[in-house]
């Protein structure tokens, strides 16, 4: 238990930020030392080199584009797929949670698709969509769609029956119960799903960009691999990590805004 009255020069929030920074700096130092002074240096470029290359990549292009463009194009692919995944995932999840019939029809199909890793679809995706962006959307979509569906389904299943009863008692019809009770009370669950999904989708981008492409952070890595450029691989990894971190924080900030009523519940 963190006592809010600890007589300290820092607030809890500041302390957490300080510890985060210390942890990152330690990681970089260990990385640097390991890469410079052990036999791992064969495969692991030192942190300083990677970071320099990373910052340079914003000015000097890797392949035909600078890092900003690679990140942008990858983000665009994730965004499109994510949008589709959100719409379909929420519809399917709420549907399965609310209607028994819907559940009976779609749950088995869904449970069948769920355990298949997105990368396993790559060969089929190439057959179906060729080498176009559609195939990449498809892979990323599969990477995030399941998380959204499962969470939404949980949310819709867990609606307090008393709340539905209260709404019916007040004269709400089934459509109103669905839109005014079931949907909003699933929102915190949906957001939990979106949060996992956005990171999952972002990490699927590497796989998706293994399919013939000329740009994107995934491509940066794949390209680094095929040319034996470990620094470039690490630069791609660093970029993916940083963007993933930012995305996760953005969604949780958005959640705090939209689900204010839920956040206060715990206090």
């Amino acid at each position: 238990m963190i006592d809010s009255t600890t007589n300290s020069r820092f607030t809890n929030k500041q302390l957490i930020i300080i510890y985060t920074i210390i942890s990152l700096v330690c990681l970089l130092i260990v990385w640097e030392l390991v890469a410079r002074f052990t036999s791992a240096s064969m495969f692991l470029p030192p942190a300083s080199e990677v970071l320099t290359a990373f910052f340079r990549s914003f000015a000097e292009p890797i392949g035909q584009h600078t890092m900003l463009f690679h990140v942008g194009i990858s983000l665009y692919r994730v965004a499109v797929a994510f949008l589709f995944a959100t719409v379909i995932g929420i519809a399917l999840g709420v549907g399965m949670g609310y209607s028994r019939l819907f559940e009976a029809i779609f749950k088995p199909l869904f449970e069948f698709i769920r355990p298949i890793p997105p990368l396993a679809w790559i060969p089929l995706s190439i057959l179906w969509f060729g080498l176009s962006d559609t195939g990449k959307f498809f892979i990323i979509f599969l990477g995030c769609f399941c998380f959204i569906t499962v969470n939404t389904y949980d949310g819709a299943k867990n609606v307090d029956p008393e709340l539905m009863g209260a709404a019916r008692m007040l004269g709400a019809n089934e459509r109103q119960v669905f839109f005014k009770i079931v949907l909003p009370s699933s929102v915190p669950y949906i957001f939990a799903g979106l949060q996992i999904a956005v990171t999952a989708g972002w990490s699927a981008v590497v796989g998706a960009e293994m399919i013939q492409s000329n740009e994107g952070v995934g491509w940066v890595i794949i390209r680094g691999m095929s040319t034996g450029n470990t620094v470039q691989i690490m630069v791609g990894i660093v970029a993916i990590g940083i963007v993933g971190f930012i995305l996760a924080n953005l969604t949780s900030a958005l959640e705090r805004r939209l689900c204010a009523w839920n956040a206060q519940k715990g206090i």
Binding site: G165, L170, S185, N262
Partner: peptide
């Protein structure tokens, strides 16, 4: 709606 209900847990719509 001719019959109103007040619940133990209040069951207000939290959102």
């Amino acid at each position: 709606p001719e019959r109103g209900f007040v619940y133990q847990k209040t069951s207000l719509f939290p959102w």
